[in-house]
Design a protein around this nucleic acid. Structure first.
Lengths: 140, 140
DNA sequence: GCCAATTCCTACTAAATTACTATGTTATCT
DNA sequence: AGATAACATAGTAATTTAGTAGGAATTGGC
């Protein structure tokens, strides 16, 4: 559950998608040109976002991508979860379990890591694309 | 700013240090035996914790480690910060800046990442060793 | 029907990070 | 002197990250 370049790229690309779309699909090349992003990499990220139904796509010429949900219903948690398959396993389970150096599962620390995970996930879930985009527009 | 095995190990080792200490130093071998941790790895982590004055050490035979602060004054943030040098740079600066695919620094997303970083860091700073240890003891 | 534009798919890779191990050296107590 | 510790540095296998490469499949417009 890390915020990395990948997360940053996806947020930039999704924001650009929303800002550039007027109901018509926006092409990957337009998104990446406007946001200065590596197109082949973002293509891969968008395929993951599509699998989780955050965006939809239209094939062929004049095709492109569209957001599949209202901007108030797409959170940072949703995005990160789509990009990172075992996002939710990254805490105690990912840290300790199945390791030679684990003291048993669940150990005395299990609930600590779980509480932290839940707290941070809830926070990330409270940050919607809507707020991210309105922040951007305030600046202009 | 990730919670990884490293963080988990450090928390286990520090908790064991606190629980095993009755004013006298606790040796690395005792800590690692009781918590089933890889000793040479934990040694390295403890050296970093010492640099940040979270623990202190006594050399030679009958030596070992002691906590250098009250358990109410050592937070998860402190521990993670000690283990990971550029902990605080891991957000926008680490994500975007100085990359070929950055749109300028600070970009429109800078404050978003910064706010998130601060929120999570404040939360991690609110979790003290004191609470972690009393959680452990409740279970017994 | 053909061509261009576009998404979709798989495989590869260089660099960095993680989670260690190995091999000592130095300091202190008895 | 010898045992017991902390301290230090270097190496390394596995994994992840952040991409690149090369193409296949799909659709709109002429």
């Amino acid at each position: 559950m890390q915020i990395t370049t990948k997360t940053g790229y996806a947020v930039r690309a999704l924001s650009e998608l929303v800002l550039s779309s007027d109901g018509k699909p926006v092409s990957m090349s337009e998104i990446c040109r406007k946001q200065n992003l590596p197109i082949k990499y973002i293509e891969q990220l968008f395929r993951k976002l599509k699998k989780k139904e955050i965006i939809k796509s239209i094939h062929g010429s004049r095709g492109g991508y569209l957001l599949n949900k209202p901007i108030s219903e797409v959170s940072l948690k949703d995005i990160m979860h789509a990009l990172d398959d075992d996002f939710s396993n990254k805490f105690c389970y990912g840290i300790n379990a199945h390791s030679e150096y684990c003291t048993g599962f669940p150990c005395g620390f299990y609930e600590l890591w779980d509480d932290i995970k839940n707290f941070i996930e809830d926070y990330l879930d409270s940050i919607k694309l809507e707020q991210i985009i309105s922040r951007l527009q305030e600046k202009k």
